[in-house]
């Protein structure tokens, strides 16, 4: 290690200069002690103001803190809301990919996640898990929001509980994306998930039936074409990673609330698309 690295004050500046276009000013020249102290204090202040120092405005996010770092927002969909939104399914489902068998709607678990990106790998964070199920004569939506990364273990254990009664999973591209991402987290936290049971990934039947007709087979396209309900006033899903980081860095809840709404819309769309395939 060379001399510069052992001077802690200079290290970060040095890294910055080495990584950017190399500058022509020396990066090893130490600031004088007083200025360094002032900078440190200033940085601390800006952080506290941004909500990193401890106080965090959580009030404007829906839900309650069920574990450190994990919020749960649970809502029962009243029958009027359900009817208006087209959230309806027969008590026993029969779908083209099951021969004679039917599945009761209580056994279905619709799920969808929002993540810190699309890059894959262990560093991908699932910060929002939304599930929709039929419980006690009504549809219930549960959204688990990882408010801070420390809530990850609690989120995985919540997922483990959701899977405990071996439901039939319903997702859109969940086989390739959401399920593996959640399984990665389970391994990381030493949580044993039940082996993947029955999983209806609706992307596949949609693709088989409409690939040639439609410009693409994204969830919103399928929703609009199959259920005649175009998505309005919604944040695009691609904004989700930024929304979460904005919240972590500055405590801004606006975008994140919109991501939660987007996730609820996606779950409802999932249910309506299944309704389209159900006989």
């Amino acid at each position: 290690m060379n001399a510069a690295a052992s001077q802690p004050g200079g290290l970060r500046e040095r890294l910055r200069a080495l990584r950017g276009a190399p500058s022509t000013t020396p990066v090893t020249e130490g600031l004088d002690a007083e200025w360094r102290d002032r900078l440190v204090r200033l940085r601390q202040l800006t952080r506290e103001r941004a909500g990193q120092g401890g106080l965090r405005p959580v009030a404007s996010l829906p839900g309650r803190e069920v574990a450190p770092g994990l919020l749960l927002d649970e809502r029962r969909l009243g029958s009027l809301h359900a009817r208006l939104a087209g959230i309806e399914l027969p008590a026993e489902l029969s779908v083209p990919w099951l021969d004679e068998r039917t599945v009761p709607r209580e056994r279905l678990l619709f799920f969808d996640t929002e993540t810190s990106g699309l890059c894959g790998g262990v560093g991908l964070k699932v910060f929002l898990l939304g599930v929709l199920r039929y419980e006690d004569d009504a549809f219930v939506m549960r959204q688990y929001l990882m408010r801070t990364p420390g809530g990850e273990g609690a989120l995985v254990r919540a997922w483990q509980r959701e899977l405990a009664d071996e439901p039939v999973l319903v997702s859109y591209n969940g086989k390739r994306f959401d399920w593996p991402a959640l399984s990665t987290l389970a391994t990381l936290h030493g949580v044993a998930l039940p082996a993947a049971g029955e999983h209806w990934d609706l992307l596949y039947p949609v693709r088989r039936a409409y690939r040639k007709e439609w410009p693409n087979c994204r969830l919103v396209t399928a929703e609009e074409r199959l259920t005649g309900r175009p998505r309005k006033a919604d944040l695009p899903g691609s904004e989700a990673p930024r929304a979460w980081r904005e919240y972590l860095a500055h405590g801004h809840t606006g975008l994140l609330s919109e991501v939660m709404r987007h996730n609820r819309y996606d779950l409802e769309a999932l249910l309506r698309i299944l309704g389209h395939f159900a006989r």
Binding site: G69, S116, G117, L118, C119, G120, G121, G123, K125, T148, P149, G150, E152, P241, W244, R245, L248, A249
Partner: peptide
């Protein structure tokens, strides 16, 4: 992102 005693990766990159 630092959360308590741990530093977590939060960026959208590999």
């Amino acid at each position: 992102h630092r959360d308590g005693p741990r530093w977590h990766w939060i960026a959208d990159s590999y």
